[in-house]
Design a protein around this nucleic acid. Structure first.
Length: 151
DNA sequence: GCCAACGTTGGC
DNA sequence: GCCAACGTTGGC
């Protein structure tokens, strides 16, 4: 099994929004970065995901989800009304992909970015690299465990 | 709101 | 293929 981290702005879609969805699952649409897309295509059913809140008063890891459907075309890129519309995508040659994720748990409290930076076990974590802007990225099993142990 | 650090685009 | 200009992300 592999581990991942996915960022979401809680104003747009929070861990609580995931809980409120039917079946506590949701398709992760709107990723428009090739590296992030490629990571999503590597995801396997059952992989676990750290749910991260970004661009908010307290950025950090807030919960865990799992992959319940592997990568398939992100249909929002075909919809001219969508803000994720991409005229260069087509049904025959989809450009963007998404996965479905399902809620697993919410942490008792947010493990903040600040704390992550202070944990020596997490040195080298991709999230903490300077200038990192990826919204989807791999997490080492040891990092995943270390973060959950911080709660 | 600022700004660093990217990624993308497009002219050449 | 280079690179300047531009747009976006995301912490602060």
């Amino acid at each position: 099994m592999n581990y991942w981290l996915m960022k979401s702005e809680p104003d747009a879609f929070s861990i609580d929004d995931l809980v409120a969805r039917p079946g506590k699952r949701e398709h992760w649409d709107g990723v428009r970065n090739y590296q992030a897309r490629n990571f999503m295509r590597e995801m396997k059913k059952g992989d676990e995901i750290l749910f991260y809140h970004s661009s908010c008063p307290e950025p950090g890891v807030v919960g865990v989800a799992k992959v319940v459907k592997e990568a398939y075309p992100d249909f929002t890129d075909l919809d001219p009304e969508s803000k994720y519309y991409d005229p260069k995508s087509s049904e025959e040659k989809p450009r963007w992909f998404m996965v479905d994720i399902q809620y697993k748990k919410k942490l008792k409290r947010t493990v903040t970015l600040k704390e992550l930076k202070q944990n020596p076990q997490l040195e080298g974590m991709q999230l903490l690299r300077k200038g990192n802007r990826l919204s989807v990225m791999p997490v080492a099993a040891s990092e995943f465990d270390a973060i959950l142990a911080m709660v």
